[in-house]
Design a protein around this nucleic acid. Structure first.
Length: 900
RNA sequence: GGGCAUUUAGCUUAGCCUGGUUAGAGCGCGUGCCUCACAUGCACGAGGUCAGAGGUUCAAAUCCUCUAAUGCCCACCA
């Protein structure tokens, strides 16, 4: 490999696809049952087949890939199970839009043809997101890729439905559910998030049937009608009562009386119920049992009629009289007009309310009475609460535990039937003759009750999440149907499941906790009798720089694929990770990716320098053996110590899901310690075998540690000198014995000296080509240190060290420039003209700072409380600091006085 | 109505769990450099009452309480 002619800029475009292909073709992502190794497994949150990679995916999958690559290198058998979700409503909507271009509706095609079209669509576009994940570098075991509508997966779904039904945990019933009039399907509560709306509260007058004067002093004019307040006046057409609180004095006498429902001329009763809030509105509430969940309860309790006035498409039906066929919101306007005309609209107040919205099309949902299928959740929730409370499943960050438990403890039954075509049909059949319900794995030949063969399947499909909640085990082909001989990488799936389940960690976004995380825990416990994962890592939401969610309608989307094109996948990954602190939302702007790109380039160029100067005959030296040699110089001992200190921290951060801290630690180490200091220090003597060996060892270990974060650039560099892929190399082993804090702080002093020298040079405006002579007066250990590193110090500061002496040896002469800082007294014989005034100013400000610090320390040390109560070592440390500061001040003052 | 989170330099933020250097960093800014790995770079520098108030402590960005602002989630607010 010719490493001398590499371009000066790293070009991601020319490397990424090449290496991805190599990894894939060599099966490096494959995970197999291996009893000799510990398993590590993650199931991907399956993206929708309609999905296009967005920043949320990019973050989510980068995190998973870092975990998988890290654990793989650590020698664990690491499986990242990929796949996609059929995403019922979302996908159906997409295909409906597509056929709409040909002027077609799904009803025009019919169910069978339409579903066929969806499958076609899926064949054509369904793997888009998989390709995009590959661009990102995701190391999924692609041979295992599953789809929630695969035949075997569908079997799992059926099996689960049947088992729950047989256990009495699935039931059918007429209830008020969330109905989306646009998608024309029922939705679960989670699929109908409430959003604030600015609306009105309308006060409607409902006349009493016939007023009868009471002896207790009612006056007729007060009681000719009762006023109810509503935000949805169109539902009044379905009112079957008006309710008041039994304690409400205003209405007590009216309870049981009859009203005439305006516009419909229907007689309705005034009923009493404690649910009615006396303080809201007029204290009297219209009751529409078929269109409101509360009213539904009242309706059941008081045996009221349930009158549905709306069609599934949100238009009024034949029960709505003259308003039939009007859209619900149009009907609202007309009804208000009509009421106004009759003098029955008392007033209108503005009123903010919140209403459910379809999570797919954002249409305002309609609470709608219909026959649906439900899962009884309380029995499933109970063990799922316990495992989290017992700490068998842990949330990171911890605070989500509370959110989870709160939801679980107040869980409602789950409406799982959907009136769409794309999805798993319910394994439910009906007998047309005797209306018997048959729940069965196969379509029954005849009705078990009446033997009729006139049997048809339920038209509904299941909620998408009813298949997703089985993902951690259904992806392994559970329940291993007899017809399924399935093996992967030569092993039966059954063995895979036993080996890889429970999975290690689930990585997802907060909005998915209820939809998916909670339900997977319930399903895992119910069907596998074990938790589906041990840890749940919840990352933040990706937002734009103003904190807004990225969305098409806001036009603030940053497309990860654009970023990959422009900056590279490594840059995308690194930048995303470095700004994502645990569980915080991520605020993105395009410029942020420059940091990642620049870092990749830095790694590239440092590697060029190393490779161009590398003596490959030395690289096989065993580091431990080599390190034990006493004559290894301080620069090399220092960088080794720093590397292992950082590596230790990176390990800790990765184990606790602090990805940003790990990434930033590696960044700071490589750039600001390895490149800025180490490589600069050894450059002048780069061929020295000690330098060669240490430079090489730190560099190649860094590349390995960096690989999970930036897989492409590390592989590209690795392959310049090695024949094996970096992704199957072992994770660097921490050498505790090499970590040497005293050496680290010694080197820090050298850096301080160099920093001062550079600063002087800059202040004195001495051009680079001029050498500056200097002397240092300092303590004995510092003196030895400086002398031993004189060459390097001279090289990187571009100065010449005349001598280093003990501070007591200083004798003032006339023609010199002094500077005292950080325990070093530097003397520069004056040969050039320098700006004395500037230097005076500088030293004055230094003196001021040190004095202030001394005052602080003195104040602290004269406090008897501090002396008495603080730990002894803290007090001692403070005393030493004070003494040092005093010494420093004395010297500074001497120098200042010298200027006078 | 309930809950959670956030508030640190011009911007984005780390540090807070586990109190003890001069509160770190990236971008931006100022100045000087195309120095033989890298101008996607190097060097030097400016910039912070750690939201406010109170408390605990010898010691608070860090622990506790309250307040304010912002954001998010949940809830059957007709």
């Amino acid at each position: 490999m010719d490493v001398n002619n590499l371009p000066t800029r790293y070009d991601p475009a020319s490397t990424e696809d090449k290496w991805y292909k190599f990894w894939e073709e060599n099966n490096l992502f494959a995970a197999k049952v291996n009893p000799a190794k510990n398993p590590f497994s993650i199931v991907i949150p399956p993206p929708n087949v309609t999905g296009i990679l967005h920043m949320g995916h990019a973050l989510n999958n980068t995190i998973q890939d870092i975990l998988i690559r890290y654990h793989r290198m650590k020698g664990e058998e690491s499986l990242w199970m990929p796949g996609t979700d059929h995403a019922g409503i979302a996908t159906q909507n997409v295909v409906e839009k597509a056929i709409a271009k040909d002027g077609l509706k799904r009803q025009d095609l019919g169910r069978e043809k339409f579903v066929e079209r969806v499958w076609q669509w899926r064949e054509q576009y369904g793997s888009t997101i998989i390709h995009q994940l590959k661009k990102l570098g995701a190391s999924c075991d692609w041979q295992r890729t599953r789809f929630t509508m695969d035949e075997e997966y569908s079997n799992s779904v059926n099996e689960v439905f049947i088992r729950l039904y047989e256990k009495g945990l699935i039931y059918q019933g007429n209830y008020i559910i969330n109905w989306c009039p646009r998608c024309q399907t029922a939705l679960s509560d989670e699929e109908a998030p409430h959003r604030e709306l600015s609306g009105n509260l309308y006060y409607l007058r409902y006349p009493l049937k016939k007023y009868r004067v009471q002896s207790t002093g009612y006056r007729a004019k007060d009681a000719e009608y009762i006023v109810v307040a509503t935000t949805r006046p169109e539902t009044m057409l379905g009112d079957t009562a008006v309710a008041v609180n039994p304690k409400d004095k205003r209405y007590k006498k009216l309870i049981g009386r009859t009203l005439i429902l305006p516009l419909m001329d229907r007689e309705i009763k005034i009923i009493a119920d404690a649910l009615v809030d006396m303080k809201f509105g007029t204290g009297a509430v219209k009751v529409t049992p078929a269109h409101d969940p509360n009213d539904y309860l009242l309706g059941k309790k008081h045996k009221l009629d349930f009158i549905n006035v709306m069609r599934p498409d949100g238009r009024m039906n034949e029960n709505a009289g003259k308003y039939k066929d009007m859209d619900r919101f149009q009907a609202r306007e007309v009804i208000l007009e009509d009421l106004k005309e009759k003098g029955l609209l008392e007033k209108v107040e503005t009123h903010n309310l919140s209403a459910g919205h379809c999570y797919r099309c954002h249409t305002i949902i309609e609470p709608y009475l219909s026959k649906q299928w439900f899962v009884k959740m309380k029995p499933l929730a109970k063990p799922a609460i316990a495992v989290v409370k017992l700490g068998k499943i842990k949330f990171y960050p911890k605070r989500w535990t509370k959110v989870y438990l709160n939801w679980m403890e107040n869980i409602q039954d789950w409406c799982i039937s959907r009136q769409i075509w794309w999805g798993h049909r319910l394994p439910v059949y009906y007998c047309r003759k005797c209306s018997d319900i048959i729940v069965s794995r196969e379509k029954p030949e005849k009705c078990p009750k009446c033997s009729s063969t006139d049997i048809y399947q339920d038209e509904d499909v299941l909620d998408t999440w009813f298949s997703s909640w089985l993902w951690p085990f259904a992806t392994f082909y559970w329940p291993f149907n007899a017809n399924a001989p399935y093996t992967v990488h030569g092993t039966q799936y059954k063995k895979d499941l036993a080996y890889f389940y429970p999975t290690s960690v689930l990585v997802t976004a907060p909005e998915i906790i209820f939809f998916w995380v909670a339900r997977m825990i319930m399903a895992g416990l119910e069907f596998m009798k074990d938790i589906p994962f041990r840890d749940v890592y919840i990352h933040g939401t990706v937002r734009d720089i103003e904190g807004k969610k990225m969305s098409k309608s806001l036009g603030n989307i940053i497309d990860p694929l654009d970023i990959i094109k422009e900056y590279g996948a490594d840059a995308l990954r690194f930048s995303l990770i470095s700004i994502t602190s645990q569980g915080q939302d991520v605020f993105l702007s395009k410029e942020r990716f420059e940091q990642g790109r620049n870092f990749a380039n830095k790694i590239w160029n440092a590697s060029r320098l190393i490779m161009m100067n590398l003596d490959t005959s030395l690289v096989k030296t065993d580091l431990c053996q080599f390190f034990s040699q006493k004559d290894l110089d301080i620069t090399n001992r220092w960088i080794l110590s720093r590397f292992y200190s950082v590596l230790k921290e990176v390990n800790k951060d990765l184990e606790s899901y602090k990805f940003n801290e790990a990434a930033n630690a590696l960044y700071a180490f490589f750039w600001h310690e390895f490149c800025d200091w180490y490589l600069e220090l050894i450059k002048s003597d780069i061929k020295n075998p000690h330098n060669q060996i240490v430079m090489y060892k730190v560099w190649e270990k860094f590349l390995r540690a960096m690989h999970p974060f930036m897989p492409f650039v590390t592989e590209e560099i690795w392959r310049k000198i090695k024949n094996e892929s970096i992704m199957v190399q072992p994770w660097p082993h921490t050498q505790e014995n090499i970590i040497d804090k005293p050496t680290e702080s010694k080197m820090q002093r050298v850096f301080t000296l160099i920093n001062i020298l550079r600063n002087i040079r800059f202040q004195l405006e001495i051009p680079l080509e001029n050498t500056l002579n200097f002397m240092v007066f300092t303590s004995r250990p510092n003196k030895e240190l400086i002398k031993s590193l004189s060459k390097q110090i001279e090289a990187v500061s571009r100065n010449h060290l005349l001598d280093a002496k003990l501070e007591g040896e200083y004798r003032r002469t006339n023609n010199e420039f002094n500077i005292v800082s950080e325990g070093m007294h530097i003397v520069i014989p004056l040969s050039a003209v320098i700006d004395i005034e500037k230097q005076k100013e500088r030293i004055e400000s230094d003196i001021k700072r040190v004095k202030a610090e001394i005052d602080n320390k003195k104040a602290l040390l004269t406090k008897t409380d501090f002396i008495k109560r603080a730990p002894q070592e803290i007090v001692e440390a403070e005393k030493i600091k004070l003494a040092e500061l005093g010494e420093r001040l004395k010297k500074m003052e001497a120098v200042r006085d010298g200027f006078r």
